[in-house]
Nucleic acid binder design. Structure first.
Lengths: 342, 342
DNA sequence: TTGTATGCGTTATCAG
DNA sequence: CTGATAACGCATACAA
């Protein structure tokens, strides 16, 4: 039987409210009594029952982070940062993966109720949320790496992201500036909704267009069968497919670094070289890319900073503050996986 | 105001106990009433309050996973598998990092109380636990990748690991079998207690000894200043250090794949090649190693399987089953980062 | 400054 | 088959 507040009260010869006051540092308690109660609590190794507290407060210190694509290393950095901050403030961080075909906001609503959450962070996912759903959620919500459709009132959620279309454009333009014209794109077509991937793809298409290069669908990988959670392998297969279809392709833009690295491996496995035969640019900026051989050129997102903003926004909303939205700039980081063919 | 069981009862014109019966599928409820109540629950989007449930049950469905070294990608696979299984069974998975200098069991004890946990999984860490502490913990505990000192009664916890000494021996012997004699070791000396790293190091030393190679301390990297959470970078620096001290070194055994990959990058950055100039063998079997160029030879731990066993053991203990212990075999996976110099 | 009583949302016991 | 009602452990308004 676990020791309860009642036991402490009895043992220290006071009422339970006094013990409660001591615990929460609220109201007046004489110093003498306070010391005595504290000692008993220590002796009995008393810890308040959080279920009871939460029930009473009708809220909790549970923050959930719902991740769509939990295997993507890019998200791990963010999760770590968020874990650190939540832990520091005495919150519990509940992590849950969101399956591909599941609506993350629906899941959030469900979990918010059943797990008694006080706030939620959505990582990954799509842009297809509905205002009604946000209202139904009822607790502060931060979207990380995505934001909602512009039709959704901005005060319903906070968001932190980069401009995926713009950055996709930038990556592609970079390859074009190096003289590449046959540029492949490694894409995850599992969903047809508005995802970061799709936005990057749109940036890719716009860059081609603005530079007078005709879009060629055969340069877009489409192996729908490989699930993203073997990121490297997906990239590997995609590159093989692309190359077999387009032997004259000289560069590839992969929408995520894991894909890019898998693709690089495929290039080597075909007896070719990066960047000599094929230039590759990724997106995200994961550690593994920096230490790859050759190091990966990529659109580097400020992952830690984004995560910090995200959790900060959540805390602010938790304290009744307004929602906030920020769009970070990514950095095109050149490290050696692309070469000029001019 | 959130909708409660009372609201559902009122709206469906029944008593709350009936609603409760419907929710929990317990006791008799006429089919007609059951349908009606279910409809109301759906309409109102009712979700039972878990705090209240937990309070009543005097237990929860909260499992915490305390990770020492949360940035190690090797652990991510395990975390993902555990997340999947806990989620499937309706448990919440709380993740928390354990700082280097913190005793994970102490932290577990503390969290067990304040977060109302029903079970805990410890990943990483040391072998230095005390029986008294385990007793104090009071909830089922599974050690993943380590086990406790042999003086601790086995029924106090479950454990899943590999034989790190043996596998360290195997990795080293592999290099020796390829003709290497000057074999570096990349080591994390931050802690002097019995960690997996130290055991692998002991295996390394034994292998040298059994093959008549004198142990040379200068072949052990010791850059204590680099924290492990920049795994790649630590390996990178370690390799530079080792090579500058031992230009005749032909092989390196790194106690973790991230270190091995960082080390490989260092080799390339010095204008040398893997495996032509230096052979590298890692430990763990992370994805990034498989797709590296060259692919990394490593001692591949069955991460998913280990995680599965771990969470399975926990569930068994949660249901009153006995504790269990298993030692998995790792697999020496040869992929191209080592060459014979015979 | 301290103690008593009430209720948070559920489940379980026990009469109807 | 169904509905009151008493806990669960805690915080708090209110009384002392």
């Amino acid at each position: 039987m676990r020791v309860t507040i009642k036991d402490i009260a009895r043992e220290s010869g006071v009422g339970i409210s006094t013990v409660s006051r001591v615990i929460n540092n609220t109201g007046y308690v004489s110093n003498e009594v306070r010391q005595r109660v504290m000692k008993v609590m220590k002796d009995y190794n008393y810890v308040p029952n959080s279920s009871a507290r939460n029930l009473k407060a009708n809220s909790s210190k549970n923050i959930a982070i719902l991740v769509k694509g939990i295997t993507n290393p890019f998200f791990h950095t963010m999760i770590r940062v968020i874990e650190e901050k939540t832990s520091l403030r005495g919150y519990s961080l509940i992590i849950q993966n969101v399956d591909d075909h599941v609506d993350e906001l629906d899941l959030a609503i469900q979990e918010a109720g059943s797990r008694n959450l006080c706030g939620v962070i959505l990582i990954g996912g799509t842009f297809g949320y509905s205002a009604q759903r946000f209202r139904q959620l009822g607790i502060p919500c931060v979207l990380l790496t995505v934001s909602a459709d512009s039709s959704i009132p901005l005060d319903l959620y906070s968001s932190v992201k980069v401009d995926d279309e713009k950055e996709g454009f930038r990556a592609t333009e970079y390859l074009i500036s190096l003289g590449h014209k046959k540029i492949g794109f490694i894409y995850d077509p599992t969903s047809d909704s508005l995802t970061p991937n799709r936005l990057r793809f749109m940036g890719y298409q716009r860059a081609l267009e603005e530079h007078g290069i005709t879009f060629n669908p055969s340069l877009v990988a489409d192996n729908t069968n490989a699930p993203f959670y073997s990121g490297y392998l997906t990239g590997f297969n995609a590159m093989k497919q692309l190359y077999s279809r387009n032997p004259d392709m000289t560069a590839v833009f992969a929408f995520a670094d894991v894909l890019a690295l898998g693709a690089a491996k495929a290039v080597f496995s075909m007896g070719l070289k990066v960047p000599d035969d094929i230039s590759i640019v990724g997106f995200d900026g994961i550690d593994a890319g920096e230490f790859y051989n050759p190091a990966l050129d990529t659109i580097c997102q400020p992952a830690s900073q984004m995560a910090l903003s995200g959790i900060e926004f959540l805390f602010e909303m938790l304290q009744g503050g307004p929602s906030r939205h920020i769009v970070y700039d990514a950095v095109l980081t050149k490290r050696g996986s692309c070469r000029s063919i001019l």
